[in-house]
Design a binder for these strands. Structure first.
Length: 268
DNA sequence: ATGGTAGGACGCCTA
């Protein structure tokens, strides 16, 4: 089995940014692409255009206007049945598949709720939803035991480390980097015995960002980024990690997403 | 200290 390249990207509308997805595929040649925020009902998903990029195997879980995930693959896979409907909302924030590679590979694509502006579960139902979502995912991983032959990726909407944000002190009260969120995310990671594939290659205290706000005059000059997008692999795959890409040029493209593609290479 | 931009869908929610 040659190296497998897995890529995750919050595309912020798959229909609007299909040409940018084509550019990502030209630049990085991923074997599997996990998208978040497709903002596209399944019946309107641009299957033809995505198939033309070299992805004959596709799973989509979308809705009108918000959220939505998709997995696009050059390799066959089987959709996973029986994964939870998180918080019982049917809000299209997760897709799981079993990739048809030697030895098998379980792949999960997550879009964790952003959580609104106020970091208080009583005052802000969106923040409560974010914490509840992660608590459910943590319990799910704990019940399944340590992950084996598995990868989970996605926009987790939390930057857990001090070096995952442009200013730890200035973001301590900002949703995405509050201590309660960081504790929740690391608890999830511990419950599944997940290994942080990006920090495998870029250990602290080096800064890593995958998202820069639209609300900056000059995102590049300000460089007020956060690492919200993650790739976790089961411990048994840590030794199979061969490389990673944070595709920062994508943030500077015309009509860019505010997130950039993140990829890892696995030698299975 | 505040408000800044973007997408989907067309008044306003979400990020």
């Amino acid at each position: 089995m040659p190296k497998l390249r897995l890529l995750t990207w919050n595309i912020n509308s798959v229909r609007l940014r299909l040409p940018l997805l084509a550019q990502v595929v030209r630049d990085l040649a991923p074997d599997v692409v996990c998208l978040q925020e497709t903002k596209c009902p399944d019946e309107l998903f641009p299957h033809e255009g995505v198939a033309a990029l070299g992805f004959p195997y596709r799973a989509v879980r979308g809705m009108k206007g918000y959220n939505g995930t998709a997995i696009l693959s050059r390799l066959p896979f089987a959709p996973r049945g029986g994964d939870p409907d998180w918080c019982g909302k049917g809000d299209c924030r997760h897709l799981g598949v079993d990739l048809d590679v030697p030895g098998g590979l379980e792949l999960h694509d997550f879009y964790v709720p952003a959580g609104g502006d106020i970091a208080d579960r009583e005052a802000n139902p969106k923040f409560a939803h974010k914490l509840d979502f992660i608590a459910e995912a943590t319990a799910w991983n704990a019940a399944r035991g340590p992950a084996r032959r598995a990868v989970m990726v996605g926009d987790l909407n939390i930057a857990p480390l001090e070096c995952d944000v442009w200013s730890h002190k200035q973001l301590l009260d900002v949703v995405s980097h509050t201590p309660v969120e960081v504790e929740a995310l690391t608890g999830w990671q511990r419950a599944g015995a997940w290994h942080d594939a990006i920090r495998h290659f870029v250990p602290p205290p080096e800064k890593v960002y995958t998202w820069w706000s639209y609300r900056a005059r000059d995102w590049q000059a300000a460089d007020r980024g956060r690492r919200l997008d993650h790739v976790w692999v089961s411990q048994d795959l840590a030794g199979a990690l061969r490389g990673h890409v944070i595709h920062k040029p994508a943030r500077g493209w015309t009509q860019a997403s505010d997130h950039v593609p993140v990829a890892i290479d696995l030698d299975l």
